[in-house]
């Protein structure tokens, strides 16, 4: 770990100003916000992130979970994963989010990890996490060691020839299915970005993971009320029963009316370069009956563009089963 300076932000504007001194808000930023630190400190110990200054934002009043007049729910950037998952508001309105968070990490990590920190969670690609290897995400232009290497847990959707890293978050998959909006304070004031537009595909610039610019501080996330009568569910598949990143996961929001699917969201984890919203699956479902045949068609559509690597071809079938199973279970929810 390199030497760094730790300062405490007094307010949002001060925090924004501090981080704006960094040439980037992406990989390699020289100034970083620190909240729970469960991911950033890990990367700093590996010298994968080497900020010279950390801005502690834990004292900022950004940790509330509250219902807004329009029925949406506002989750503060600093709301801890455990608090979000156990919040009555979240458990009753958005069970998929509570389930997704509780399926990730461990109780201890969730007690520390923040909502915004989880949004920015780094990949678990072993080559990204080890400076001895080429990695375009960590060292742009150096190459991708994962292609042809240890890639069992990496992405099969949204990858490029420059990067096949997977986004490891569970929370973000649920937020994708919930059409969340991310609220940001930046040097030019406040703005809101739909989560669908927040993440960037790796393309030829895998070091750029989000639309965040220097100075940008996520202040909160809003989740709109689900259409009345919607059901939501998260299912995560992995080798061991706990404390493992998803090999495949699915977040589903489903509303049926008169035997037809009226509203549906399907998002996938563990298989995408970013938290993966499957418009293909949704298109295959809307207006159709919620039955096994249509669920399988949706799953086929979702994985049609999959590009498996040397060790993870099985994820194509696994993700399909995950989608079918989650839709099936969601449709059966009373």
């Amino acid at each position: 770990m390199q030497l760094f300076e730790l300062i405490t932000a007094q307010n949002v504007a001060g925090a924004v100003k501090e981080q704006a001194a960094s040439p980037t808000a992406q990989q390699g930023a020289s100034v970083r916000f620190i909240a729970g630190g469960t991911n950033l400190v890990d990367c700093m110990k590996l010298n994968v992130e080497t900020p010279r200054r950390l801005v502690d934002i834990n004292g900022l009043p950004l940790d509330t979970i509250e219902k807004l007049p329009d029925g949406s729910v506002k989750i503060g950037a600093l709301a801890r994963n455990s608090d979000v998952a156990q919040s009555d508001l979240i458990r009753t309105q958005f069970p998929v989010l509570s389930q997704a968070i509780l399926s990730g990490a461990t109780g201890q990590l969730r007690n520390m990890a923040s909502t915004a920190g989880n949004l920015l969670q780094k990949t678990r690609c072993v080559y990204y996490r080890d400076r001895a290897y080429a990695c375009n995400k960590r060292a742009p232009g150096s190459g991708c060691s994962a292609i042809g290497g240890y890639n069992r847990n990496l992405a099969i959707l949204g990858t490029s020839e420059h990067c096949i890293a997977s986004n490891p978050s569970d929370q973000n998959v649920a937020l994708m299915a919930l059409d969340a909006t991310i609220h940001i304070s930046g040097v030019n004031g406040q703005r809101s970005v739909p989560i669908a537009a927040f993440y960037l595909l790796p393309g030829s610039t895998p070091e750029k993971e989000t639309v965040l610019l220097p100075g940008d501080l996520i202040t909160h996330v809003t989740v709109p009320a689900l259409p009345s009568g919607s059901k939501s569910l998260y299912v995560k598949l992995r080798d061991r029963a706990s404390y493992e990143f998803a090999l495949a996961s699915t977040a589903v929001v489903l509303k049926t009316r008169q035997g037809k699917i009226e509203h549906v969201r399907v998002a996938l984890g563990g298989v995408g370069a970013i938290p993966w919203r499957s418009h293909e699956a949704e298109r295959a479902l809307v207006g159709h009956a919620p039955n096994a045949e249509n669920f399988r068609k949706a799953a086929e559509a979702a994985l049609k563009q999959a590009r498996p690597q040397s060790q993870n071809a099985f994820k194509v079938e696994l993700a399909k089963r995950c989608i079918v199973h989650t839709l099936t279970q969601a449709a059966q929810l009373a």
Binding site: R124, V126, A132, S145, G149, N153, R240, A241, S242, Y243
Partner: peptide, 20 residues
Amino acid sequence: RSGAPINANLADYLLPVNAD
């Protein structure tokens, strides 16, 4: 290619946890 034990940590080298 490198010959490294590449999953050399307790998140990537899987051992049973209590739930298993």
